[in-house]
Write a protein that binds this DNA or RNA. Structure first.
Lengths: 212, 212
DNA sequence: GCACATACCGACCATCTGGTATGTATTTAG
DNA sequence: CTAAATACATACCAGATGGTCGGTATGTGC
């Protein structure tokens, strides 16, 4: 069924190629500066194929953000940081893992949705919402471990786990911004060190807990 | 001298108006999506005036980042957070001040250079460097207080003050990204609460200090 | 085998974009 | 008073951009 004859339309192939090209090109050039022809060239498809799969450039932006959410979810689900048995160790392993992938070319480790949302937050609400859903959805995957770590230390503060999970994402996004400005990945890694230290300090004293 | 007749060219007036318009429009629409005519319309000048003052759009980007650096430097120098006598209190007051200005429309409290650098970090090195200089220059204004706070607690770790200063900027930038994605300023304020808590925890135990 | 949907192609178009060329009013130096 | 420089204004242009449209090839249900 999925394997058709050589000249078959290969349903959805062009669409996937365009989405993957979008992730690469938009991270490097930004959403607005990326033209539809840039995308077609990178994906090796024609403009006709583009508009067959996406009604507009904005629609591609939404689809790219959704695609990003899916691929990153799979990527992080398969990542090794889930191995430790202690939830706090898993959380720290997550931060260490995020730090470990900040190497090489900035465009390669930067975040598609973080980049896009800065540009379109006011002009394209549909893209903005898709980006927000990706970021906050990823943050939510950390909540269980944070909550477990808090429970282990008898910290029961409603909403604190979700809040810390969001903060972790904020630090990662900000670290990428600083790395871009200073043109140096080390600036991002440095911030993740501070983040790890914050988490350790938060969970150090079991009696006080993470409240202000 | 500065006050000339009504129909005088008013030297530099158009330039300043364009720079101020750039800060507003680019924060809302992004650099690439902002056309030169957008800028001229907002500044109420003609295209001729634009290209009289700036040789290209990229040059305006650099000038806008520099202008941003100047105006924010003046703004923060005049801000009330310098009042406390204790350096740690000043640092915490800075974070509280940054939190207090995160209200209203997102474009109004977002950072020009943080927005721009995400878009142009790979395609316009001159703008990227100007943005980086603005961010890191502002971070440097915190170093003295951080260092003093560390000295008060006999913490002597070379580079730690600069590193924390940069981290604070990273968190602020990331908080803005998250606020844009979730379309809610509260998301940014929440991260600044975490940041303040981190700083307090760092300086709580005078013996251990901020090392990892 | 026939109607229909899907997948894709490539020419075309109106508009916008950054940028230029030329002209003009005002200020300033000598 | 003159010459040059400054600070604009206006008309214009070549190329790019998002998007449209008619067409073709292939697969699918009946």
């Amino acid at each position: 069924m999925p394997r058709s004859t050589k000249h078959a339309p290969e349903r959805g192939n062009a669409r996937t190629r365009l989405l993957e090209a979008a992730c690469d090109v938009i991270r490097a050039k930004g959403f607005t500066a990326t033209s539809i022809e840039d995308l077609c060239r990178a994906a090796e498809v024609t403009k006709g194929a583009f508009f067959h799969h996406f009604p507009s450039k904005d629609a591609l932006g939404v689809a790219a953000a959704d695609h990003w959410a899916e691929t990153t979810t799979a990527f992080f689900a398969a990542a090794p940081y889930h191995a430790p048995s202690d939830p706090l160790d898993r959380l720290l392993a997550y931060i260490a893992f995020r730090k470990s992938i900040i190497v090489g070319d900035i465009a390669d480790f930067s975040c598609l949705v973080g980049t896009m949302v800065q540009e379109v937050h006011a002009s394209a609400p549909s893209i903005r919402d898709a980006c927000g859903a990706s970021m906050l959805g990823h943050a939510a995957t950390l909540e269980a471990d944070i909550e477990a770590a808090m429970r282990d230390r008898d910290i029961l503060e409603p909403g604190a786990a979700a809040s810390l999970a969001r903060h972790i994402q904020a630090v990662i996004q900000g670290a990428l911004v600083l790395a871009k400005g200073g043109n140096d990945p080390a600036l991002a890694r440095e911030s993740l060190d501070h983040l790890a230290r914050y988490v350790r300090l938060l969970f150090r004293s079991s009696t006080t807990g993470p409240q202000a």
